[in-house]
Every structure is written in structure tokens, then in C-alpha cells.
Amino acid sequence: DNLRAKATRHIFLIRHSQYNSESSLDKDRTLTELGREQAELTGCRLASLGVKFDKIVHSSMTRAIETTDIISKHLPGVNRISTDLLREGAPIEPDPPVSDWKPEARYYEDGARIEAAFRNFIHRADAKQEEDSYEIFVCHANVIRYIVCRALQFPPEGWLRMSLNNGSITHLVIRPSGRVALRTLGDSGFMPPDKITRT
């Protein structure tokens, strides 16, 4: 009984908001003005949920850092942790395949890393966790889609069949029993339609 989980984990996976994708250097791929607005809307939405967030874990890429900077303003006092595990990449070769995107060599490196991110961050609460937790992960579309497939035990090759808007919220619930529920996938209904993008 001492080893049995007692608490529920609420995982909020946030896709970074719109960014300038012209440059090839990550440091120059900063948020657009609309992207900054989107992040404000996402921050407002998260703050309005009325839950006490335990931490924000974010990808170390520029667009995720900048999205986190804005979201954090709406969630004062919530600790931020940066991780390379959540950086964007090619998680697994998609099925059906896509003809215009073939990063074969990247699957080996990115796939192992993104799988490590899944195993590291997505699991039932530890036995010592007494209270339910609410954690935010600010990262990327491919990473979120792969995590959703893995968490639901759906074929991970299907990740590319899903589509996520910028600044959208994906909410996974992990019960002490290990049961997983996807409560929302890519919710952006809190944004006006003219501010919704998918870049």
C-alpha cells in the first residue's frame, strides 16, 4: 500500500504560439505579434481555470520559452523548468507516410528523445504524492501528438493524423490506477476565430 499511487495528475500540454519560421536559427524564430497575443489568451485561459498549478515545464526552444514567458505572467509564483527533452522533432515515421517530409535520419535521434520525454513526464503520480497535481508542459505539435498517442496506447505512428492549433490546450488526466483520459485535445475555443493559426 505504501507504493500505491493516491493522487491524480492533470497534465496540460500547450502548443507554443505563432512564430517567425523564416529563419533557420532557433534563436531568431521568435513569436510573431499574433503569437504573443495568442500566448496571452492561453495564459488567461489557464489562469481562469481556478486551479493551483504546480509547475511549468517547457521546451528549451525559443518559441516555447517566449510562450512560457507570457503564460507565466498570468500564473505568478509557478516554478518554471526548461528541458531539452521536449524540443520539437520527428517522433516516429508517420503512417500513412507523407511524401514532402522525410526526415529519416532524425527518427533515430528524435524518436528516442521524445520517447524518453514521454517516459520521464507522463506517468501516474508517485506514491508519495498526497494531493492531485496540475502541471503545464509548453512544447510542440509533434511532441504533443506523440505523447497523446502513447498515453492513450494508440498506435504512435498515427500522430500526424491529429492537428493542433497554436496556443491550444491538451488536457490529460492520469488516475492513480494508471487509467488515462484525454479531457481536451488542442482546445483553442477560448480564442477568437481570427486569432487561430496552425503554423
Binding site: 516516429i92 520517447e115 524518453a116 517516459r119 520521464n120 507522463i122 506517468h123 501516474r124 502513447r150 496506447q153 494508440f154 498506435p155 504512435p156 505512428e157 490506477s177 494508471g178 487509467r179
Partner: peptide, 20 residues
């Protein structure tokens, strides 16, 4: 291929491998 894809739920899904 990571993870089961048979449609049968694995309740020990997060206990099979050590966390990295």
C-alpha cells in the same frame, strides 16, 4: 514499435521501464 497497439489496455504501462 513502442507500446502495445492491440487495443487491450495495459494497466502497468508506466511501470515497465525505468524513467530516464
Amino acid at each position: 514499435r513502442p507500446g502495445p497497439t492491440s487495443g487491450v489496455w495495459d494497466s502497468n504501462w508506466d511501470k515497465r521501464e525505468p524513467r530516464s
